[in-house]
């Protein structure tokens, strides 16, 4: 059980960064950013490659920078070229496949053998004992959560938030919504790439298909978190990113251990969670309407 909880904590901390990215793009900017899957692998590829060449820490920064570039491409496609938001993400994602192969030296899989990673470097300091990788992941996650929370209260952060809330009002306040969308997506994708970078170094491997479905899982966790602790203030929403991922990884680990349901079914479950959670308000509304129609039908009969 301890092992299960540890794994869930570790993965929960890292994948919470993906949910944080989706919180920015999906919840704040109101854009379903499908760059996410490819961007996650991009982060992984860049950071593992850098580690193989002996630069694990630099690898994290390079991964984030690469994520920024990917986000910028998606943003520019939609704001300057009129490509619909969803399509812009898909287009970038497709292009990233090649970029990711390139980043891994044209192979579909690379491994860190004896070289250091940020995790092995941190372990050698002795801090955190056997919890070292959880501690490091948690600190990095918490750091970025705090930075994002502070950013969202700045003038620029307010502009980004208003862009998703009421774009007309943003332009009327002499802010260019094209710029705020760019800024939002650049930040979001740098976070996604960071998560990929950490997973890559933690598992000591990067795989060209390592990002499949990440966007849906990230959204599912975001929604699970919001359901568990409620959607209130920004701070609460940000913490929900971690809670959701932890809960999801716990469930995942339990299923993996007990095999109540075949592991292969997990993707389907995840998809169901997302579809249901997003559909729930509409379903509720329809149910209420249906009930009313039936009741009034009775009264009039």
């Amino acid at each position: 059980m301890l092992y299960v909880t540890q794994t869930a904590l570790l993965l929960g901390c890292i994948y919470a960064i993906v949910s944080l990215a989706l919180f920015i793009s999906f919840r704040i900017l109101n854009i379903a950013d499908l760059t996410t899957d490819g961007c996650f692998v991009l982060g992984m590829a860049v950071s593992v490659s850098a580690s193989v060449h002996g630069h694990p820490v630099l690898g994290l920064f390079l991964a984030m920078l690469a994520g920024c570039a990917a986000g910028a491409v998606t943003a520019l496609l939609q704001t300057r070229c009129g490509v619909p938001a969803i399509l812009a993400g898909i287009v970038t994602n497709t292009g990233l496949y090649t970029m990711n192969l390139m980043a891994m030296g044209w192979s579909s899989n690379i491994n860190i053998l004896k070289q250091e990673t940020v995790y092995t470097l941190f372990r050698s300091t002795g801090i955190g004992g056997s919890w070292y990788n959880i501690l490091l992941s948690f600190v990095i996650m918490a750091l970025f959560m705090v930075i994002i929370r502070l950013f969202l209260a700045t003038r620029l952060g307010l502009s980004v938030r208003a862009t998703g809330d009421n774009p007309d009002m943003v332009a009327a306040s002499s802010i260019d919504p094209r710029k705020t969308i760019l800024i939002g997506l650049v930040i979001a994708n740098s976070l996604t790439a960071l998560a990929g970078a950490l997973i890559g170094q933690m598992q000591k491997t990067a795989d060209i298909n390592g990002g499949t479905g990440i966007v849906v899982i990230g959204l599912a966790c975001l929604i699970i978190g919001e359901t568990v602790i409620g959607r209130g203030s920004l701070t609460r929403n940000i913490i929900a990113c971690f809670i959701g991922n932890f809960v999801y990884r716990m469930i995942y680990a339990v299923i993996l251990q007990t095999r109540i349901i075949p592991v292969d079914c997990l993707k389907l479950m995840t998809a169901l969670i997302v579809a249901l959670a997003i559909a729930l308000p509409t379903i509720r509304e329809n149910a209420a309407l249906y009930r009313r129609i039936r009741e009034e039908g009775h009264r009039n009969a």
Partner: peptide, 25 residues
């Protein structure tokens, strides 16, 4: 107005029309 933002946040945005005086961060 932006409905999910507070009164002071909306006003702060409107104030950006003043330009240079306030820093982005």
């Amino acid at each position: 107005t932006a409905p999910h933002m507070t009164i002071e946040e909306n006003l702060a945005l409107a104030y950006r029309r003043a330009g240079g005086k306030t820093s982005l961060f």
